[in-house]
Each structure stands twice: as C-alpha cells, then as structure tokens.
Design a protein around this nucleic acid. Structure first.
Length: 462
RNA sequence: GGGCCCGUGGGGUAGCUUGGUAUCCUUCCAGCUUGGGGUGCUGGUAACCCGAGUUCAAAUCUCGGCGGGCCCA
C-alpha cells in the first residue's frame, strides 16, 4: 500500500498512467474514460446488475433533463442540491418556457412518474434501478473518480407499502453491499449518518465508507430511508386491500465510480494498481520470452496456452509487442493485471509455464495443470482483501476521550448534536455517524460526560 | 466562502528574476540490434493554455478568462 504522504501525488498520476482516464478535457471535473478504465467500470456495473437481478430489481432509464417544476416539489431536497445544479435555459436561440436541469440525482424525475405507475398494493414493492450520468457543480477541488462533476451513477429506487417493508429493503441493500464489495476485495464500514449530515430529504441515511491510504475515508455507497418524505409531495399513493389510499414508503441505494477510486487507492502500490480478478479486463497476460531461433515455437506455445486459459473462462491476452520482457512486466503491473504467464525456451523444454501474481508470488506450473490458474486467482483475491482488511482494522481506534489519532475514531456519544459537532471541531474531523450494526456503549460521552448511548465515528473525509 | 502555488512537444522538465536563437529526459515513428525485470545505436515527428495590454520585440512583464494542484473555514 502507498504511504500516506505520497498518496495524493501517486493517485493523481496513476489514474492516467494506468490508462483509466484522461484528465485533459478542458472542463473541470469532467474527465474522459479511456478504454481500459471504462472496461473496468463496465465490469463493476456488471457486478451491480447481477446483484440487482438476483434481488428482483428492474433496470430503467429516465431522461437526463428534469423540468424545474418536478425538481421543486420536495423542499429539503431542493435546498440540498440547488447550489450545484446545472441549468438548461435555451434551445437554439429561444429561451425555454420552463427551465430544465441536468439531474444531480433522479428522485424528482422518477417519483413524478412512479405516482402514475403505482395504483394498488399489488404494484408493490416497486424495485427499480438505473445506471446513468448525473451532474453536480462541485465547488471544491475535483479528483478523478472521487470528486467529479459528471458522475457515473448507480441508483436503486424502491417503493413499499409500509415502513417495515422499506426497512426490509434496507437490510437487503446491506446484504447486496456485503457481496458486492467482497468481490471487489474492499473491506468497508457501515454507519448511520448523524441527523445533521443526512441526505437532503431523507428520514435517515446510511453511509458505506472505506479507508484510503491517505487516512481519509471515502464514501462509496449510500442507502436512504425516505419514509414518506417524497411520496407525499410527489403523491405516490396506492390503494390498500381495505380500499383506502396510502402513501408509499421509499428507499434508495446509490454508488458511483468512487468504487473504482477506492480500488485504485486501496490496492495500489509503487508499481501501479492491483485489480481484483472479478473486474480485471485481462485476468491473465502471456509474455512470450523470445530468443533467436525460437520465435515460431514460442508463439505457437503461447497461442496454445491462451486457448486453454480461455477454456477456463479467464480472459487472456498475449503481449506480442516488440518490446523486451522486462518492459512488458512493468506495463502490465502498472495496469493491475492479476496474473502473468511467461513462456520461454526453458518452460517449453520443461513442459511448464512460469507464473507471477500481481502481488509478487512466482511459481512454475506444469502445462497439463493449467486449471490451477483459477485457484491462483482466488488466492490472490483473498490476499489483497486480507491486506486491505488489516489496514482498515489497524486504523479504527476505539477511544474513551477526545484524542487526536489518524484513521477512524469511535468515541462514546450521548447522542446530542452539540456534542457531536464539538468532537468534529476538536478533532478537525467529520462524523461518519453511529456504527451499524449497532454497538453497545457503557461509557460516558467524550464531551459532556453524561451517559453515552452510542458511539460516534469520526474521520477525515474526501 | 477565503487564501496560496502552477500552466512550455504525448508525459516530465530547463529557460522567466535581468524581454531577443526554447534545454534535457522519456514516449512515439523508421531501421538494425537485443530479448527470463525498463537492451544498445542511428535517424525522425513533436511545445511556450486562451484573450487583451505594454514593447521595435513577450514563454518571460501586467490584467482577465479557462484549466490544474494545495491549504484554511
């Protein structure tokens, strides 16, 4: 893992040298996805779609533009987003009768229509999601994948008959997160955000955070319980079995390319990025070790091995560029390919292939045991997860008093806002909220010394 | 919201104080050579963010814009 001091420079450089994005597009916070980076992002999206599918969510795609009248329906929501909205005011030379905005998030677009879709209890629960671009005019510093103005956004929106069913949904969302982030080898913490920091319009918000090597946390997912805060202004009502009309209860679950930012940051080292095998566009790269007189023999063997690797369902690429092997090694390590296979004259003579995992384990495998590569990848994933988990655990500090430490702090808290704010100020950190699942506390509040009812997590954040 | 630094070939840079011929490394292209951790040689392509101002003359000085990085609230 990269040192804290070096991290910011390293990150800014690596996202471009690993060919994930190109930052030269002249609009702040709007970077170009390069083919390699975009492929990784699509693989991440595919994992999300898989989880949505198996939990009965349906994919939709709503328009990018939202009429001002829709956006204005929920007061808290407007307050939270109006400062960062992009407006469309003209079409050609004509001023529009009604201003349109680029979605900063899609609640107001979806919910206006949900009110038409939902008529009876039989329409519930309604479980939808979409993967779209959203736009937020960020005033703070932008950073590739971490703070951007055009966001590659996943948002699940659900409607339920009652609060209990919405709560069940949130439990399901947390299970989805568990499976999803495990595949990305990303350990995380879940916190219920304090009231003063919940999503605009939410009844409560849950944040999914990871710890970056810079010792700042990065929010990579959020889950919101809206209760009836949106269904009332948007009039999303259904007819119950008793013939009466009720407002729905709603939830959302959101994630973005920040997930990729987290993978880059947490699994990175001096050589480059390390991709979990679940999302690596190339899982195995073959480097031919060519010597004079061996050209054809080596290439033939490479092609044969490639075919066998692909039969295992592993994407495989032969790097036949006219460069020296060492040069290629550095290239693919930079780009995070999990497994490298070298094939040279000695390997052919001994009927083996030489392999090296991205985290530095080298061995020889007999050519008739190629299926072992699958196990090697599994072990590799486990190792990079374990390394990240160790880092996270080592940097969560459970304290009794306000004390300046790096990482994530947990302090006993009475639950009063003023005490929480005071902790933020004294530590120069932001509160992430209270641990989920809930954690018992028998201490005294670190500020007012009254009985603490829970713990407050604090950290420096992105 | 307030402040600081920066912008030179694809990437990284020198030059800017004291205005006048744009440096080096790398990448890229061609050829030969080499090939189990960044081979070597020869040749080639390629740049002063945009606009205005000062001046005989601006990469260099002034102002503005856009973009990038950082710090504080």
């Amino acid at each position: 893992m990269i040192d804290k001091e070096k991290f910011d420079d390293w990150y800014n450089e690596i996202v471009e040298t690993a060919e994930l994005c190109d930052k030269r597009y002249p609009i702040k916070g709007m970077n170009i996805w390069k083919p390699y980076g975009w492929k990784i992002m699509q693989n991440i999206d595919a994992l999300i779609r898989y989880e949505m599918e198996r939990t009965g969510h349906n994919e939709v795609y709503f328009p990018l533009l939202i009429p001002e009248s829709y956006f204005k329906k929920e007061e808290e929501h407007i307050k939270g987003f109006s400062a960062e909205v992009y407006w469309v005011t003209h079409a050609g030379k004509n001023e529009l009768e009604e201003r349109l905005l680029l979605r900063p998030t899609s609640e107001t677009a979806l919910y206006s229509i949900f009110s038409l879709w939902i008529r009876s209890h039989a329409d519930l629960p309604l479980k939808t999601f979409q993967i779209v671009n959203t736009f937020r005019y960020e005033t703070k510093m932008t950073k590739a994948f971490i703070r951007v103005r055009e966001i590659h956004f996943f948002e699940a929106h659900t409607c339920h008959a009652d609060y209990e069913d919405a709560e069940r949904q949130i439990k399901e969302d947390l299970e989805i997160a568990e499976r999803f982030f495990k595949k990305l080898c990303l350990p995380f913490i879940v916190s219920k955000r304090p009231d003063w920091d919940k999503f605009a319009g939410a009844y409560y918000s849950i944040g999914i955070d990871v710890l970056m090597p810079s010792m700042k946390t990065l929010q990579v997912g959020s889950i919101h319980q809206y209760k009836q805060n949106f269904s009332k202004p948007f009039e999303i009502k259904y007819e119950g079995k008793d013939g009466k009309h009720y407002y729905c209860h709603q939830t959302t679950y959101g994630m973005s390319e920040r997930v990729l930012g987290a993978i880059v940051g947490i699994h990175g080292d001096e050589k480059g990025i390390k991709l979990p095998s679940s999302i690596a566009p190339i899982k195995v790269v073959i480097i031919p070790i060519i010597f004079k007189g061996w050209e054809e023999k080596i290439m033939e063997e490479c092609r044969k091995i490639k075919e066998e690797i692909e039969k295992l369902g592993l994407s495989c690429h032969i790097d036949d560029r006219d460069k020296t092997p060492g040069n290629k090694f550095y290239d693919w390590e930079l780009k995070g390919v999990p497994l490298r296979v070298e094939i040279g004259p000695k390997d052919i003579e001994n009927e083996v292939i030489s392999i090296a995992t991205r985290d530095g384990i080298k061995k020889k495998i007999p050519v008739n045991e190629i299926q072992k590569l699958k196990e090697e990848l599994e072990e590799y994933d486990k190792r990079i997860y374990a390394e990240a988990e160790k880092f996270l655990k080592e940097n969560i500090h459970v304290l009794k008093e306000v004390e300046s430490r790096e990482g994530i702090l947990e302090l006993p808290w009475c639950g009063k806002e003023e005490c929480g704010i005071k902790m933020e100020e004294e530590l120069d950190m932001k509160s992430l909220g209270t641990p989920l699942p809930e954690k018992e506390c028998n201490e005294k509040c670190a500020i007012c010394k009254e009985k603490a009812t829970t713990w407050l997590r604090l950290a420096k954040t992105y």
